[in-house]
Write a protein that binds this DNA or RNA. Structure first.
Lengths: 227, 227
DNA sequence: TGAATAGTGTCTTTCAGACAATATGCC
DNA sequence: GGCATATTGTCTGAAAGACACTATTCA
């Protein structure tokens, strides 16, 4: 944007459309799920796609992603992380569309609200069993999955997939689902507690004919995804 | 891009301009430098800015970044990494401009070519002593610096800042400059050689009244930034 | 032989991973 | 008491970090 000859003018360039697409993940039924919406129009009418839409001229990219999430899935107050920007010239058959992909995690209890609101045709799909996706959304999803998994290897973000207070065994289960590998209970607890990000609530949860579990919560106020 | 009512049409949305901006880093004179260009036009005429420019309708984002690098700095065959997309509504006073930031590393010997070619007003600036930058380029640079440093902590990309063959002490010096902290010579050598990415060329370099150093090169063909 | 950089090994500490027995509550 | 899950510690191997002396070349 810098050493452009004086004759250059932004308005002279053919402008692309810019969209945001959001990878909204949750863990349900012991599996990682992603929210998809069924397209009601061409192109790709009837196919599943990531929620998203055009960025308006008065909003930031993140605001656009939050607005789309609200409109299409009824979700508010969620932490978003920008993933990557996809801009191959022909990724949209209609015209040049550049899309900025975001990723977000939804706590399990909130997933019920979604796809019940005025969401048109939104539904959770297990990532292990996906339909064909519109546009290059399969590539976007693949990229986001890789990022999600690598993040789980060195951070404690799994709490964002759980209710405010949870059992350590639930937290471990989330890690196992995302990473796709079983973890040793003692080593997991040693590690997650050594991060010093969790605190016991003092409460216990009884859910079966066995010893009740201590409940933990995340120490930080609000949702902090990067740690 | 998905559950848009049928009446929606990309062409109905006011389209933003989209640019790419590139953080081109090198190490010169024992300091990390970034390439800046002096703006020849409003807005911010006369101020320094990151090299970059508008994305054309027939090229990908990466192609646009490579083209701009070639036009503004005469550089080819360089590895680029997409950093982040900045899209605050008023980051450009003229109109809505969304910019996709890229990062690249230039080997020291190639830096001489730059800013000598037909580059308009391109110059290397030490990142520790920067002028005020146009637009939000200071924020983009801050973001890129953080990413660069965190990358150096767990990868071996420093070789991209050196000529094809180099002394281990030179490589160590690059790490020290980027990380801003001195490293132990024995531990550094142990670590970098244990990565198994370097091989001795068999040659030695004599440059002073002391024992000549073995030269090493990177094993992989081509430039691989992520490892 | 003095100056300057190259090159090398050990010890300690820390972290990750393997591994199994006891505790507590409900039925 | 039987069942189901909760809770806890030790040992081992690997990697990271602290640390100092010898080697080689030129002037």
């Amino acid at each position: 944007m810098s050493s452009i000859p004086p004759s250059y003018d932004p308005s002279k360039f053919e402008r692309p459309s810019v969209t945001v697409d959001i990878l909204l993940f949750t863990v349900k039924d012991d599996a990682l799920h992603v929210l998809l919406v069924e397209r009601g129009e061409e192109p790709f009418r009837g196919m599943w796609a990531l929620p998203g839409g055009f960025v308006r001229s008065d909003e930031s990219l993140e605001q656009a992603a939050l607005r789309e999430l609200c409109e299409e899935a009824g979700i508010k107050d969620i932490y978003l992380e920008q993933l990557y920007t996809f801009g191959e010239p022909n990724r949209d058959p209609r015209t040049r569309v550049i899309t900025v992909a975001y990723m977000a995690l939804v706590p399990l209890p909130d997933t019920a609200l979604i796809a019940s609101g005025d969401a048109l045709h939104a539904a959770w799909h297990p990532v292990a069993l996906l339909p064909n996706l519109a546009f290059d959304h399969a590539a976007i999803l693949a990229y986001g999955l890789e990022r999600l998994r690598s993040k789980f290897r060195y951070s404690s973000i799994a709490y964002a997939l759980l209710p405010e207070s949870f059992r350590l065994s639930e937290l471990q289960r989330v890690y196992e689902i995302i990473l796709g590998t079983p973890l040793d209970k003692r080593n997991f607890r040693k590690w997650i507690l050594s991060l010093n990000l969790l605190e016991a609530t003092g409460n216990r949860e009884q859910n079966g004919a066995h010893r009740p579990a201590r409940l933990y919560r995340y120490k930080q106020p609000g949702l902090v995804l990067f740690n």
